[in-house]
Simulated assay, not measured.
Amino acid sequence: MSVIVENGTIRLVGACPVEDAEPLLAALQDDPLRKVDVSAMTAAHSAVIQLLALFAREIEGAFADPVLGPVLGPVLGPAIGGTSALAKRIQPR
């Protein structure tokens, strides 16, 4: 599995296939304040990227693959070093 939750952070490791979308969503819903570390992610299915764009409150780390940063930066921009638009509206319980 490419989704690892440890110390209040969700780490995405290696290639994140579509099968990782469900555990990623569960981890993001379980604690909306969790940060997501993408520094070890080498690839990602579009479903994983969509979840990051919609639900990730804050994304840490530089992408392991130098192509991912420029490609995903515009999509994930609000969450990189900040807060995604949707996460701003989600109030933690």
Rank of each mutant, 00 (worst) to 15 (best):
M1P: 03
M1V: 04
S2V: 04
S2K: 08
V3F: 01
V3K: 01
V3N: 00
I4L: 06
I4G: 02
E6H: 09
E6V: 05
N7H: 15
N7T: 14
N7F: 07
G8I: 06
G8C: 08
G8H: 09
I10D: 00
L12N: 01
L12I: 04
L12A: 00
G14E: 08
A15R: 13
A15W: 02
C16H: 00
C16S: 09
C16Y: 02
P17S: 05
P17R: 01
D20T: 05
A21I: 04
A21K: 01
A21V: 14
A21E: 08
E22P: 02
E22F: 15
E22G: 07
P23L: 03
P23H: 12
P23Q: 10
P23M: 06
P23G: 03
L24H: 03
L25Q: 10
L25M: 07
A27E: 03
A27Q: 03
L28I: 02
L28W: 03
Q29M: 05
D30V: 03
D31I: 05
L33A: 10
R34S: 08
R34N: 07
K35D: 09
K35H: 12
V38L: 04
V38H: 00
V38T: 08
V38C: 03
S39F: 14
M41V: 02
A43E: 07
A44G: 14
A44R: 01
A44K: 02
S46E: 12
V48P: 00
I49L: 15
I49E: 07
Q50N: 11
Q50D: 06
Q50P: 06
L51F: 13
L51R: 13
L51D: 04
L52P: 00
L52G: 02
A53V: 11
A53N: 08
L54Q: 06
L54S: 04
L54N: 06
F55D: 11
R57K: 15
R57A: 09
E58N: 15
I59M: 02
E60P: 11
E60A: 12
E60R: 15
G61N: 15
G61I: 08
F63H: 06
D65N: 15
P66W: 11
P66V: 09
P66H: 11
V67H: 14
P70Q: 05
L72Y: 10
G73Y: 03
G73P: 04
P74E: 07
V75G: 00
G77L: 06
G77C: 12
P78F: 06
A79I: 05
A79N: 12
A79F: 08
G81H: 13
G81Y: 13
G82T: 05
T83A: 03
T83R: 15
S84P: 04
S84A: 13
S84G: 11
S84D: 02
S84K: 02
A85F: 10
L86S: 11
A87E: 02
K88C: 01
R89K: 13
R89L: 09
R89M: 10
R89E: 04
I90T: 08
I90R: 14
I90M: 09
Q91C: 10
Q91Y: 09
P92A: 15
R93G: 06
